[in-house]
Write a protein that binds this DNA or RNA. Structure first.
Length: 405
RNA sequence: GGGGAGGUACCCAAGCGGCCAAAGGGGGCUGACUGUAGAUCAGCUGGCGGAAUGCCUUCAGAGGUUCGAAUCCUCUCCUCCCCA
């Protein structure tokens, strides 16, 4: 256990959270002087962590560093039933083999942030799948429809007369039951999990357990600046993204997102962030420079200083002075694709994967987005292909042609 | 069980017999400019085709009416509302 006093621990844990229900309760639990069991529920889909869900994982890591115990709950059972969010598609059912295989993947992925030696991974099918229908009904009797409909996404869908499937109403209960099953002292989650986590408190109280403390972390807006970061929305920065991509994605953030990103995704001291915010507001700081720093900080956090600086240099080269990137992917082109060493340009773009279809390729050409060996080509003509030909689409997609057999 | 309203491209949403590959918005892509892949402005945004008033696929699914259907009819699946 840490030598830190309960108050000092609370002080640390509070940072970067939106709400703790309640701080008094957390303080009391910390004062018990035992390792607390901190629960975090995760989606059962393939784990691809982005810097948004990394926020809550980092909070969990902090608990670990203070000597507490992390329990990751993979919602394989809840995920198997269907879709709780209403928006996304019904999830594909996972076979037991897939679940088994995922167990390893989860450990591997999450150990990038968590301390693997202090992390327990559990699948909720273990207890939820074992329940009899009788037990399910008994569980359901612990709450009321009105209570469940208070959850804002249900309330909203109800008001808008959008479909709400019966089993979706059971989701909060399932998740709450997870807390009962592992006897959680604390449950972490994004602010969108507030209702479910609070339900855990209530259910624990119902069955005679001490109610868990709920710690809520902010949801990070995605690259579009509107929706929350999510891999499926294509607005995410993955923590395993290569440095160049990570740096570039940060640079593409809308300006107003810089401050929240500094706050949630970097270790820059709060006072410094406030100062920067003020400087930006008064025009004393240049937004581009602030964003460069942000991109460096984030890239450094998931890679290292060297990689961050290299990514910055690369970014300046390609987008600032519009020079060639350091590495250009080779694309092998079979000689059988050529006619007398030549090929129609649109075909070449498709063959090299720079365009989705012939029509797409033509579109790009006519819009002036295509260059061969740095020279713009405006017409879809037959072009001479030699080994090493540089094909470019837009500012950031390159391919070096390698002639194969 | 009865009655009513709906299911349109990546998303939202118009269209309600030909002028519909299908308005508009979002998203995406390209260009200009710049402070970056930010902001702004402009263009593009099913596929095949050198091109065409050309061909193919698409308006929940399957049939049908018609010279011609996203648009009309029948059945099926799905959603919402009202009544029971």
């Amino acid at each position: 256990m840490t030598a830190l006093s309960p108050a000092a621990q609370l002080e640390r844990l509070r940072r970067g959270t939106v709400e703790i229900v309640t701080e008094e309760a957390l303080l009391a639990k910390l004062a018990e002087g035992r390792p607390l069991r901190v629960k975090l529920g995760l989606d059962p889909t393939a784990p691809d962590i982005h810097i948004g869900n990394a926020i809550v994982l980092q909070k969990l890591r902090q608990f670990q560093d203070l000597g507490h115990e992390a329990v990751l709950i993979i919602g394989d059972f809840t995920g198997l039933i269907g879709d709780p969010s209403g928006k996304s598609e019904t999830r594909p059912s996972l076979t037991p083999q897939e679940i088994e295989r995922n167990a390893e993947t989860y450990r591997d992925q999450y150990s990038r942030i968590l301390d693997p030696n202090r992390t327990r991974v559990a699948f909720n099918s273990q207890w939820l799948g074992a329940m009899t229908f009788y037990e399910v009904i008994k569980l359901a009797s612990r709450t009321t429809v009105h209570r469940i409909l208070e959850r804002d996404d249900f309330a909203k869908r109800y008001a808008e007369r959008l479909p709400i499937h019966l089993h979706e109403l059971l989701y909060p209960l399932c998740q709450a039951y997870d807390s009962v099953a592992v006897q959680a002292d604390v449950e972490l989650g994004g602010t969108d999990q507030k209702f479910n986590n609070l339900m855990g408190r209530e259910l624990q109280r119902e069955v005679g357990q001490a109610p868990q403390v709920v710690v809520l972390t902010p949801l990070l807006p995605g690259l579009d600046g509107v929706q929350k970061m999510s891999k499926s929305l294509g607005n995410a920065i993955g923590i395993t993204d290569p440095p160049n991509e990570m740096y570039g994605k940060v640079m593409s953030l809308p300006d107003p997102l810089m401050i929240p990103y500094f706050e949630y995704c970097t270790l820059v001291p709060l006072e410094e962030i406030r100062a920067l915010e003020g400087a930006l507001g008064s025009g004393r700081a240049h937004p581009r420079d602030a964003k460069r720093r942000l991109a460096r900080e984030i890239t450094r956090r998931y890679h290292d200083e060297t990689a961050a600086l290299a990514a910055e240099a690369e970014f300046d080269r390609v987008f600032g002075s519009r020079e060639l990137p350091e590495e250009i992917p080779d694309v092998t082109l079979g000689r059988d694709r050529l006619r007398g060493g030549r090929i129609r340009l649109a075909r070449l773009l498709v063959e090299t994967g720079l365009a989705d279809s012939n029509t797409d390729a033509r579109r790009l050409i006519s819009q002036g987005g295509v260059s061969l060996d740095r020279a713009r080509v405006h017409e879809d003509l037959e072009v001479e292909v030699r080994d090493g030909l540089l094909v470019q689409v837009g500012r950031r997609r390159f391919a070096r042609v390698r002639l194969g057999e």
